[in-house]
Amino acid sequence: MLWSDAIKALAAQTLVDGPDFEVKNFAAADLLSDILATSKEDFVILTGQTSPQAIRTAVAVGALGVIIVRGKQVLPESINVARNYGIPLAATQLKMFESCVTLGGLLWSSPSSKN
């Protein structure tokens, strides 16, 4: 699916914009340690962590974008880091589980990105 499809499905607010791209997978975790241990490719991170550290972790593991769940207030500093490293950032009001269910439904119904 496209990043823009994910944003639309989650009714997420875009905080840092960029050119649209294909998402093949998602990594959902609040533990940055878990995110650092993932071996996924072409993926977007779903997390409840709003700190600049979370964004840097996303950069380190080569995530294509970050979506912050549970309607948490994102620190301006985090938005700056995302902009600085060119990583798209969005925030949704949906809880982690609801976000995963929504995206899973989309991801696995679309034949092009079945994994």
Partner: peptide
């Protein structure tokens, strides 16, 4: 994570392939 992302950026600017950038950054 700051040293990690700065090093990764440096590797990227030197043409190190993305998968290796990622391993070093992690």
């Amino acid at each position: 994570g700051l040293a990690s992302v700065q090093l990764k950026r440096e590797l990227a600017s030197r043409g190190v392939e993305p998968a290796l950038q990622r391993r070093v950054a992690i």
